[in-house]
Amino acid sequence: MRVGVVTFPGSLDDRDAARAVRVAGGEAVPLWHADPSLHDVDAVILPGGFSYGDYLRCGAIARFAPVMDSIVLAAHDGLPVLGICNGFQVLCEAHLLPGALIRNDSRRFVCRDQLLAVENTGTRWTAHYRQGQEILIPIKNGEGGYVADKRTLDELEASGRVVVRYAGGNPNGSYRDIAGISNEAGNVVGLMPHPEHAVEALTGPGTDGLGFFASLLGVAA
């Protein structure tokens, strides 16, 4: 399976995301922000970082990159899309996911290993986890507070679209401890923590993040 990883100016974790795809057994295909072609990929990852220097708002400029027009159209047709950290912010700015991410309530950049509870295993990116499974993966953000109005939050909860929730403490003030959500169809998922940093024991707290990529590829994690 060919998995595209987008590089925007200021992306940081595109190489790690591509590596995670390869570790899980997929083929990582680099996609460039200024190139509208998706090069026949079967899925897309929007990686972490500081696209366009986080100017204006995190993800606000990246949303208008040529590659994003193609991704938005393809996502509506069912293309699996995973947004990690800055990628999650881009997905919210592009209205592929509801809500927004604001500065951490602690006013501090948070960088630590974070416990998450997987609450929806019905998405293209989480099928390999057990419902309620707790996983440990790194989080690193300054603007990771998930906010949305009450109606949107209630709708997300009622339809099971809260994919992962912070466990063992909320690191950034996210409403209802929400760490990641999906769209209605379950093909688009965004989360602030970084599963791509937890795919090999050598460089992460464990391999709990591998399940996101293995789920997509349909292989054992």
Binding site: I102, R103, N104, D105, S106, R107, G145, V147, G173
Partner: peptide
Amino acid sequence: LKPEILDPQGQA
């Protein structure tokens, strides 16, 4: 920011 949205920078 909308009134109901926390403004940590303003608080700082």
